[in-house]
């Protein structure tokens, strides 16, 4: 297929994923901010939300203070933020439009429908109820996109590139969400700081839609190291780093088989996947969760670049 087509598919999937991720982060921040400080701790949830989307610098250049209104506007609607949900859906649709021929009708419908649906939220008063409505709309749009891709796309290289976009973006997002909160995720042997952090942990789970999953997997009350374990190493959770890399490595292997050759992208993906498979939470906490996540985000970015160099240009 055309390199440019593959590139558009890759970024289409990434932008849809990013939009959904930002919606979940906003949702979690909104809930946490509604809990009295005596329960949730003194941190500014809105600042964390901006940080978790990796757009702190852009935010600070536009706003002096992370008020709820400023953050909601910046992350959800602002055309000045290239990663706002609106910008993501617009870019996703621009990428989709550029590769109409590579999309199934259902995929086009899902992304074009999301783009048309955005207009419903133009110029309305953005109170909390409207915000919740908007966030559910974004999550549904992303589910529809994923679902239509999964159910209607031919299982060929186009599917691989689109899936790679989703999983690389997802891995990046999960790692960033964890990294913003790494200080409340302490190893098992450390002193657990009472109930204060409970809502922080629960908020992390909420921002990856894993509250229920946690209880199914561990059948325990929330423990910070288990929250970290779930999101980093547990390959049952679709948003965990381990699960993302199982998929990334598999899709890259499929590509190398279809094309009859492999390159740096396959090697980087395999090495990261192996590291995740062999790691333990104890080991990660010992050498520092923050350091681990920083390195992971860097390595994930390098893989994105390697895929670009190898296939998309």
């Amino acid at each position: 297929m055309l390199s440019r087509t593959a590139e558009n598919l890759f970024w289409l999937a990434r932008y849809v994923e990013r939009a959904e991720n930002t919606a979940r982060i906003l949702d979690a921040a909104n809930r946490l901010a509604a809990i009295p400080i005596s329960y949730a701790g003194g941190s500014n949830e809105w600042e964390s939300a901006v940080a978790a989307t990796g757009s702190a610098a852009g935010f600070q250049s536009l706003h002096a203070e992370a008020t709820p209104e400023a953050v909601v506007d910046f992350l959800a609607f602002s055309p000045d933020n290239p990663s706002s949900i609106r910008s993501c859906l617009e870019r996703a649709r621009a990428n989709a439009r550029a590769v109409r021929t590579a999309l199934t009708g259902e995929m086009w419908d899902s992304i074009n429908g999301a783009w048309l649906g955005l207009k419903r939220f133009d110029g309305v008063r953005r109170d909390r109820i409207r915000l919740n409505e908007f966030l559910s709309f974004v999550k549904e749009a992303s589910l529809r996109f994923d679902g239509s891709a999964y159910r209607t796309m031919l299982r060929n290289d186009a599917f691989c590139f689109s899936s790679l976009g989703s999983f690389i973006e997802r891995a990046d997002n999960t790692a960033r969400i964890l990294d913003v909160k790494y200080h409340v995720l302490l190893p098992a042997e450390s002193n657990v700081g009472g109930g204060l952090d409970y809502f922080q942990w629960s908020s992390i789970l909420r921002s990856v839609s894993a509250n229920t999953a946690y209880h199914w997997v561990y059948r325990e009350s929330l423990k910070p190291w288990l929250v970290a374990d779930l999101l980093v190493l547990n390959d049952q959770l679709p948003r965990s780093l381990a699960s993302c890399y199982d998929n990334i490595a598999a899709f890259l292997d499929e590509l190398s088989q279809a094309y009859g050759r492999q390159g740096p992208a396959q090697r980087i993906a395999r090495s990261t996947r192996n590291r995740l498979q062999n790691a333990t939470m104890e080991g990660i906490f010992q050498s520092g969760l923050h350091e681990f996540l920083t390195e992971f985000i860097g390595e994930n970015g390098r893989l994105g670049q390697a895929i670009t160099d190898q296939y998309l240009v």
Partner: peptide, 27 residues
């Protein structure tokens, strides 16, 4: 392009080497 089953290319997808036209593909 869709109905014909052919690639929809832009100028930047094409290149010419030794007076032969190629399109840039993932392969």
């Amino acid at each position: 392009a869709d109905k014909l089953g052919v690639e929809l290319v832009e100028g930047r997808d094409l290149m010419v080497r030794d007076n032969v036209v190629y399109m840039r593909t993932t392969e």
